[in-house]
Each structure stands twice: as structure tokens, then as C-alpha cells.
Amino acid sequence: MFNSSIGRKVAMALSGVFLIVFLAQHFLINITSVFSEEIFNLLSHFMGNNPLVQFVLQPILIAGVLFHFIMGFVLDWQNRKARPVSYAMYKGSKNSMFVSRNMIISGIVVLSFLGLHFYDFWIPEMDYKYIKSLPEDPNRYYKELVHRFENPYRVGLYCFSFVFLALHLVHGLSSSTQSLGTNNKYSEIIKKISYIFGISIPLGFCFIALFHFITFYNT
């Protein structure tokens, strides 16, 4: 089934929904850093040291991210091949949303951001735990997070990337449910949910980054 165009888009949708669920979970943990250092450290310590999360869920997540991006590039390449000669005049804006036509661009920005995000958090975490094998400090997570958002350029880059994440999610969520064949009577409500989720979650991540940046400069 996954060799067909519909199979590929179902696989793309499933990986997208999986990443959306992860994103929501990531946001819920991060937002605790705004109001409680203790809760954030507690949750981060659990996520960073639970064997199920570390050795089962984390590899699945990385595989999901890789699959989603590789499949995205493959589909885009196939789609470009399907129209070898472009139109001299093409008015895409007359019949579709800009975000839906440019998922590959928003996706590439989000992919680049993930590179930076891995460099900032995931690689140091792997280094701390598995290369340097330092003793676990359950209170280090909040400090590490705040330290990252002291740099205004990094905060700016994060917020810029979150705008593209929002553009990707606004179409991505409703598109994935359409690919999974959601019953038609739910289409409108799903579109509204996509807008609300797609804008509020990246906006929330922006808020977290700016909150820690502003708090750092005020103290």
C-alpha cells in the first residue's frame, strides 16, 4: 500500500500527526518553566532518565522526524517531475492558500531550526549523559534552558522559525486528517482546530523563549 501515492500521503499524515502529538507534549512541559522551576526540572528529569522515553520513544521520535522530512522531499521531487514545463502565468493564490502551496519551504525552515535545536539541547544532553557520563543533577534542566535564551540572536532565530512552524502546522494538521480520510462533516471544525493549534503552539513557544530572555535581562 505504501508504494502508492495515497499510501505515501497516509504515511506522511500519520508521521505528521505523531509529530504534532509530540509537539503538544513538548509545549506542555516547556510552559511549566514559566511558572515553576521545580515542576520543569521534575518533568525534564523524568523525560531525560526514564528508560521507556529514552530508549523506546526517543528513537521512534527521531525515526518519525527523519521519515517525515525524507518523505516530504521525495514527494516534492515527484510532484515537480509531474509538471516538467511550468506555466508562463500561474495564479495559485486564486485557488489555494500560500501555506498549502509552500509546505516544502516552511518544512525546510523547520528542519534547519531542528538542527539548531539539536545543537542547543539534544547534543549537549547526549554529551552530558552518554559521552562524559556526568552524575545526574535533577536540578540542572531549568538553568540549561534559561542559559540558552540569554542570547538575543538565538531567541530571534527561534521566534523566526516558530513563524514557519505555524505556517506548516496550519495546513499540516487539517491536511493530515484529510489524507487519513476524515469524515466530511468534521472538515470545518478540523480546519478551525488546525488554525487554533497551528498558531497557538508556536506562539506559546515564542512566549517561553521571550519570557526567559526578558526575565534574564531584568534580573
Binding site: S5, Q78, S100, R101, H171, S175
Partner: peptide, 9 residues
């Protein structure tokens, strides 16, 4: 033919 990306065009 290409793949559908649900643009709705």
C-alpha cells in the same frame, strides 16, 4: 500524475 497535498486548488 503527482501526489495530492490537499491544497484544494
Amino acid at each position: 500524475f503527482g501526489n495530492c497535498t490537499n491544497t484544494g486548488a
